[in-house]
């Protein structure tokens, strides 16, 4: 469904992402892991269009997204959350969802935008999303007044409000405790059950290993492994990437 083909992003001499190919199937939870600086976030930014790739393509359901601007990809069904939470702090919780729900619809309003329809944040869809993310009691508070955990939930609700085909979660557990992580796992499954394919970028191993159908591992911008959680855990290259290279240690000992 979402296919990355030979995707690369070079910043000068730094090969942040280097020839990564991935296929994510409809309805799965796909984990993307790797040590710090391995190119996970850059990959997300390439999929959403924040960066233009040096080489390679991104396709969704056969449509080539590579040349599309960010807002066009949103209309195609790509949504994301951010590692460092991004919300419109001056807007209320409900308005944040309203913007996400209606922003991309303007493309389809052919001639006259729906100018005279302010106050549309009282729609059943938004009420449903507010309930889904347990933010119903906070709907009219400015987003900046929420707690950290509530902001994370609002971010995910907002991403869902644009009615995406695929949702990219960039470290949704960052700053969360282990118990929060378990709640988060349930939420991510709920999202998948709504018919949204999930690409999960995460550091918290328990979370990724617990809920992903398949996992890919990046290291220094290259894909070093792909498979089921068990296969990935058993892979020696992955162990080396996370625990340091065995050969290097031996070299040090012999030196």
């Amino acid at each position: 469904m979402l296919t990355l083909e030979n995707l690369s992003k070079h910043f000068g001499g730094v090969h942040a992402v280097d020839g990564v190919s991935l296929t994510i199937h409809e309805g799965e939870i796909f984990g993307l892991i790797g040590p710090n600086g391995s190119g996970k976030s850059t990959t997300v930014n390439l999929i959403t269009g924040l960066y233009a790739p040096t080489t390679g393509t991104v396709t969704l359901d056969g449509y080539d997204l590579t040349a599309m601007a960010q807002h066009e990809r949103t209309a195609m069904g790509v949504a994301r959350t951010f590692q460092n939470i991004r919300l419109f702090g001056n807007l209320t919780v409900a308005q944040n969802l309203w913007v996400a729900q209606n922003g991309h619809e303007q493309r389809r309003a052919h001639f006259l935008p729906r100018w005279f329809k302010a106050g549309g944040e009282h729609s059943p869809d938004i009420d449903e999303l507010l309930k889904f993310s347990r933010l119903h009691s906070k709907r009219d508070l400015p987003a900046s007044a929420l707690s950290f955990g509530e902001m994370r939930r609002l971010e995910m609700a907002r991403a869902l409000a644009s009615n995406p085909r695929v949702l990219l979660l960039d470290e949704p557990a960052a700053g969360a405790s282990l118990e929060d992580g378990q709640l988060l796992a349930e939420r991510i499954r709920d999202v998948r059950d709504r018919g949204v394919t999930v690409l999960l970028i995460e550091h918290m191993m328990e979370l990724v290993m617990g809920i992903s159908d398949r996992i890919a591992v990046l290291n220094f911008g290259r894909k070093i492994a792909e498979g089921s959680p068990a296969e990935v855990q058993a892979n020696s290259d992955v162990r080396a990437a996370y625990l340091g290279s065995k050969h290097k240690d031996e070299e040090l000992i012999h030196a």
Partner: peptide, 8 residues
């Protein structure tokens, strides 16, 4: 950046 991500 966020605005673009909302489809604007």
């Amino acid at each position: 950046i966020l605005a673009a991500m909302q489809g604007l």
